[in-house]
Design a protein around this nucleic acid. Structure first.
Length: 425
RNA sequence: GGAGGACUCGCCUAGUGGCCGAUGGCGUCGGUCUUGAAAACCGAUAUUGGGAGACCAAUCGUGGGUUCGAAUCCCACGUCCUCCGCCA
């Protein structure tokens, strides 16, 4: 939810933001009207209520003789108060609904346009020249088979499309990646967290995933639970309804969890392999910080993402995502895209978003400092989304004999091994 | 699953229909005293909304209800605790 004060004082800013996102600009006026109506109904209700409070006090101290008359008018007033209260309540929910539909106000400098209008900020590393090395690289599905690491066929047999088993080397590689990521996070002061992956609607809604992203969320009808698509959700909701001590910010958490995504609207996209799957594990960074520090914190999260990608030694580029491709909570988003040789393309492996006070307002999370209490900023960033990182490692570090070199940083977590070797079928 | 009990301001707690936005203690902050600190003493110390403001309104787990008036009475739900059963 955006700041209604900003909306009232500078509606054009919000209109421009909606336009940049390609979202409904007219919503701004709907929200303004709802806000207007709500405030006038509050004034009406409170006036009546104050009158009633006075009258009630007089009833208490009235003599038996004057009591019946007072009670008579008090009764009328009580009805009027009840009516006004109901109208006020309705106006408040109308405003909430309308303002919840508004996306966060995009940061100045975000590229205009939609998905394809991103701006490349930098390239890190150089893709290998497999032709020069004299062999044709295998894709991660084939490598996964050769190494006994990924079993997509049995994943499909047991659970359907977009499911897979990580086996042997694949499973060990996941554990190593998680350990490396958590070690890095802890070193930088993140508190490691293993959160619940089933959450109530309040958590899902407050994080902003029940709006435009709702179709990608698994919902357990019978128990009214939602399966999280990222530990961002339970990490953001962790401090729901709390006031945090400003002196202890930024507060940083690194959450490890399974993530579940319906991938609706992705029919036919990335159907091969484990680039786009319904279930995967991920280490996610999450930060609560003062609003004025949010842009700097955003850059720090990006730097930590790069640190991890540097450690696994794959070429990647960093992009500044265009306004039309931002989530509703985010004002700006940087993605890191790893080079995938067999696709001859950079593919998203991490993503970091600055959500400013948008989520905090919805989740009722505030900070207290010398200036009082106010909403704080929340930011998130991927540290390690396991399957995509596995794809990047296997494809980029493969050797002509089908083996895969293990990046130096991962070796301590794999018993010192230097490479994954093909297994006999 | 069954039976009881609890839920009040950062923490603990008083409060059974109007004198209660709410007592007291702890903690925190400010002051007096002190070379400094501690102790003692004095004072301050919830949140939200409306209003330019004096102020006004709301909030005692949540939502309903009774009443002129609810922290207080009634109903439902939630959370936690204890006991019993069941499962491991």
């Amino acid at each position: 939810m955006i700041d209604l004060k900003v909306l009232r004082e500078n509606p054009d800013l919000v209109r421009a933001s909606q336009r940049a996102r390609g979202e409904d600009v007219g919503l701004v006026d709907v929200v303004l009207a709802a806000d207007e109506r709500r405030r006038s109904l509050i004034v009406e209700f409170e006036g009546l209520r104050a009158e009633q409070n006075l009258l009630s006090k007089r009833v208490g101290s009235a003599t038996p003789a004057e009591r019946p008359n007072l009670l008579e008018s008090a009764k009328d007033l009580a009805n009027a108060v009840k009516r006004a209260d109901a109208e006020r309540g309705a106006a408040e929910s109308a405003l909430r609904e309308a303002s919840n539909a508004l996306s966060n106000i995009v940061e100045a400098g975000v590229p205009e346009g939609s998905e394809e209008n991103f701006v490349v900020l930098e390239h890190v590393g150089t893709p290998r020249d497999f032709a020069a090395e004299g062999f044709e690289p295998l894709d991660h599905v084939e490598l996964g088979k050769v190494l006994g690491a990924i079993d997509t066929e049995r994943g499909a047999k047991v659970s359907g499309a977009r499911f897979y088993y990580l086996t042997g080397n694949g499973a060990l590689l996941e554990f190593a990646l998680i350990n490396l990521a958590m070690a890095q996070a802890a070193e930088h002061g993140f508190i490691p967290v293993i959160p619940p992956v089933l959450v109530k609607s309040k958590a899902m809604e407050g994080t902003g995933f029940l709006g435009q992203a709702a179709e990608n969320v698994f919902h357990l009808e019978e128990d009214d639970f939602y399966l999280v698509g990222t530990s961002e959700v339970p990490l953001a909701a962790y401090h729901m309804d709390e006031i945090l001590d400003g002196a202890k910010l930024p507060l940083r958490y690194a959450g490890f969890s399974s993530c579940f995504r319906r991938e609706a609207g992705a029919y036919g996209k990335d159907t091969r392999g484990i680039i786009r799957v319904h279930q995967f594990d991920k280490v996610e960074m999450f930060s609560y910080c003062p609003p004025d520090e949010a842009p700097a914190e955003h850059r720090r999260l990006l730097a930590w993402e790069k640190e991890f990608l540097n450690a696994i030694e794959v070429p990647y580029r960093v992009i500044d995502v265009a306004a039309g491709d931002l989530g509703s909570s985010a004002v700006r988003k940087f993605d890191c895209e790893a080079w995938i040789p067999t696709q001859n393309a950079y593919r998203e492996v991490t993503s970091t978003s600055n959500c400013t006070e948008f989520q905090a307002r919805r989740l009722n999370i505030r900070m207290r400092d010398s200036e009082g209490t106010k909403p704080l900023a929340t930011l998130n960033g991927t540290l390690c989304a396991v399957p995509r990182i596995i794809v990047a490692i296997l494809e980029n570090h493969q050797q002509p004999d089908g083996s895969v070199n293990i990046p130096l940083a991962l070796r301590p977590y794999l018993g010192g091994r230097e490479k994954f070797l093909p297994v006999n079928a």
